[in-house]
């Protein structure tokens, strides 16, 4: 029974989702929107579980003084600090207070400063690491070890150098044309082949889930 009820629910709602794709009727749309709203409701409850999980894991690390437990102290301190400033602030009359249901906390100067001057620069730094990782990955990928790798190297050079202004009109024109062909013909063909496979795989997996063949999401893979 513990397994049958979820499988039945998945079947019913899965079949409805297939039906609503083919039915634009107002009633079908209303039910679809109603079900989608449940994702937000479940998400909010799950977020509470998620935050509890983070606190529990970090606290456990600090309590047992596990390796690099100091990072967990920083995590918890940052979490509670942002939480505190996020729910406190000044209202229209300049009165300070706790605001759980309204947005005063989001305008709290401390909350905004922490967000704009700590979180955003850290995020930007993480993202900018990508540039260096692309360089190291490209170095590994573009080594001419065999014929195919050499073809990849030459193609990549053409695509990367196509905008070089020092090539002149004639050479630049042919570089551009070759790069466009590489991107629009072999590259696009490979991409579309993968996308068709993905599409079929998605439909196949969705049908397997609806029919109860695929039960990995319940721990019965």
């Amino acid at each position: 029974m513990k397994r049958q009820i979820p499988i039945f629910l998945v079947f019913v709602f899965g079949v409805f989702m297939v039906f609503q794709y083919f039915s634009p009727h107002e009633a079908s749309e209303w039910i679809y929107k109603f079900l989608m709203d449940w994702i937000y409701i479940i998400g909010i409850f799950a977020m509470a579980l998620g935050i509890w999980s983070l606190i529990h894991v970090s606290y456990d690390k600090i309590k047992h003084k596990r390796h690099d437990w100091g990072y967990s102290v920083v995590t918890l301190a940052a979490l509670f600090t942002m939480m505190f400033f996020g729910i406190t602030g000044f209202n229209e009359n300049g009165e300070w207070g706790f605001y759980f249901m309204t947005q005063e906390g989001l305008t709290n100067p401390m909350f905004r400063n922490f967000f704009n001057h700590i979180l955003v620069p850290i995020e930007t730094t993480m993202f900018s690491l990508l540039a260096f990782f692309i360089a190291s990955a490209a170095y590994r990928a573009f080594r001419a070890r065999n014929v195919l790798a050499t073809m990849l190297l030459v193609s990549a050079l053409i695509v990367m150098l196509r905008f070089n202004p020092y090539f002149g009109d004639t050479f630049g024109f042919y570089m551009n044309k070759t790069a466009a062909w590489l991107l629009n013909v072999p590259n696009m063909a490979a991409k579309r082949a993968i996308l068709i496979g993905i599409g079929l795989g998605m439909v196949g997996t969705a049908l397997k889930v609806i029919l109860g063949i695929e039960r990995g999401y319940m721990g019965k893979g």
């Binding site: 479940i42 977020m47 579980l49 998620g50 990995g216 999401y217 721990g219």
Partner: peptide, 13 residues
């Protein structure tokens, strides 16, 4: 967080 909840059940099972 929803993925975490499902993943916990999957691993537990």
């Amino acid at each position: 967080p929803i993925v975490m909840t499902v993943a916990q059940e999957v691993v537990k099972s």
